[in-house]
């Protein structure tokens, strides 16, 4: 077990396997060696650390080089799937093949928590949490991102394109729709 101390001075006893998903902590443990000393995480709050260190029940990567993934695991991209925004029951049901129960619990967070998780994942160097689905919509756009206007609305982004510019960039990148 490893003792972690968060920015709000809470202490967490966490399994080594779990905390080693963080490259930062893994490196620290390698540098320090076996020790009872707590590891300070001044940039991570206790609420975020709870989310980040929840053990995944989902499938894990078989091979770090991406080889030999069996048919059953071709959709696996990382040990844990990244967060997306809160979904309705119906929407969630449609994605059951893609998101484990643990992942569904993990991803039902508000935007503030989502941002904190992303920043913490960056600080702790947890690649699997820096993944893609935070902008995805599980209902109508099952395989793709939400439409731009929805993403803008969701994150209060101002559209600084003229309609012509937006049409032009859409046309230029149409090749990328090829699947």
């Amino acid at each position: 077990m490893v003792l972690l101390v968060t920015s709000d001075n809470e202490q967490f006893q966490t399994e080594k396997d779990i905390v080693e998903r963080s490259v930062l902590i893994k490196n620290m443990l390698e540098d320090v060696g076996e020790s009872d000393q707590p590891i300070p995480l001044p940039n991570v709050s206790s609420s975020v650390l709870k989310k980040v260190t929840q053990p995944s029940t989902g499938p894990t990567e078989i091979d770090v080089r991406g080889r030999y993934l069996s048919t059953a695991s071709t959709t696996v991209e990382s040990p844990s799937r990244p967060p997306i925004l809160e979904q309705s029951q119906d929407e969630t049901r449609k994605r059951t093949t893609d998101i484990s129960e643990w992942d569904q619990k993990f991803i039902t967070v508000d935007q503030e928590m989502l941002f904190e998780i992303i920043l913490a994942a960056n600080y702790l160097d947890i690649k699997s949490l820096l993944c893609r689905r935070w902008l995805q919509d599980g209902s109508q756009h099952d395989q793709g991102a939400r439409p731009p206007e929805e993403i803008r609305k969701l994150f209060n982004i101002v559209n600084d394109f003229t309609p012509e510019e937006e049409a032009q960039i859409k046309k230029e990148n149409e090749w990328a729709e090829d699947r």
Binding site: L130, R132, Q143, D160, A176
Partner: peptide, 23 residues
């Protein structure tokens, strides 16, 4: 740089959509 890291995980179709959000 963090946004770029996240963008790298998206599919090409998704990246093309993100290009249209803002400059």
């Amino acid at each position: 740089e963090l946004l770029v890291q996240i963008i790298q995980h998206f599919s090409k179709a998704e990246q093309a959509t993100l290009c249209r959000i803002c400059k």
